[in-house]
Simulated assay, not measured.
Amino acid sequence: SGGYSMIPPIESRRNKLLNMSQKELDDLQRYKEEHRPGPIQLSPKKLGGGDISLSAVRQKQQMLASQSKLKKKLQQQDMDRRKRQEEEEKIQMMRDIQREKANKLEMKKKQEEERRQELYQHELLMKREAHLQRLERSSPVPIAASSATPTSSWARGHEYREARKAEEQVSLQQNRDEQRKKSQLLEEKQKQEEEDRKRQMENERLCVNSAFLDRLEARGSGRVSELLPCTQELGNVWQTEEPQDPASSPLPFPSQLQTDSAAEEDTDIEWVVMKLQTKFSYCEREFLESIVSQCNGNYQQAYDLLNV
């Protein structure tokens, strides 16, 4: 036990392998010697880049470094843009798929609803026909010819709807009548206010005219200071303004008034009124016309009356 046996190699084969390996080594050594590089012969040159200075080299290196950073940044942005575009396309595709599914589901629901409505209408019609047939079989007299009150649920519902409709019509008519009455009362009130306003304006105009006539009579009798104005508007009329006519006097005598009135009988009243409006723009045209007509178209007399 524990013994072993050795098989001696074949000498001829061993020698052959050794010779082949030795030959290959010799061939390799010969190839290296034949292809050995020769000596390098270069002309002497100055190191450091020739005529380029150190600052130029540093600037060139800095420019290349900045360009490389910019190039990397652009490449990164391009990659991000492509990535976002791919993500958006993917999301859009998913949205389209979901939208298509939703449309299909909605169409399916609509079809089911239509089918259900058709079945419901069909069943309702069948039940109504069956109910009418039972009523016809149970009653000896037809429903249309019977004078009794219908007792079916449909008839009661119809009567209830008719009653509700009549009540709504009555309430609507009542509301319309109330609105019409309110509008009539409002219109009458507005008319009454307009009439009161016109009456008040007419009274004020008559009061002003009477005050002017009284003042005219008082000027002839020399009692100007004893009269008082009737209204506040009358007090605004008495403003001191000298006439532009140089031949006129502030207080003419009766003989002079008669002479002026005789000389200006042919004067147009409209022209006198327009001339007075330029002087007394705060007075109304109707008031000025009444004053001019009372003065028989005499501009100076009307001006003196208004300028007291």
Rank of each mutant, 00 (worst) to 15 (best):
Q258M: 03
L172G: 06
G3R: 05
G2R: 02
L64S: 10
M126A: 11
R84H: 05
A56M: 11
S147T: 00
E168R: 14
S221G: 12
Q190K: 15
E289D: 07
R58H: 07
Q61N: 15
D177G: 00
E159P: 03
K73L: 13
R161I: 10
E106Y: 10
Q179G: 01
S293K: 15
K104L: 11
I10G: 10
L135V: 01
L74Q: 14
Q239G: 03
K101C: 11
S248G: 05
G220W: 13
A218W: 01
Q77C: 09
N236P: 01
P250V: 03
G220P: 00
L135N: 06
T151M: 03
K109S: 12
R84L: 06
F253G: 11
L257K: 04
N103A: 14
Q77Y: 09
V224P: 00
N307C: 08
Q244G: 07
P39T: 13
G49M: 04
S153H: 05
C230D: 14
K71S: 14
K108F: 10
Q190H: 15
A130V: 08
R199M: 08
C207D: 12
E193V: 13
C283V: 05
E178N: 03
L74G: 11
E11L: 12
I40F: 12
E242F: 06
K109N: 13
Q75H: 07
M93Y: 03
E24D: 13
K191G: 07
Q169H: 06
E33G: 05
N307V: 05
E167R: 08
K45M: 11
L64V: 12
E195L: 12
D304V: 14
S249G: 02
Q184M: 05
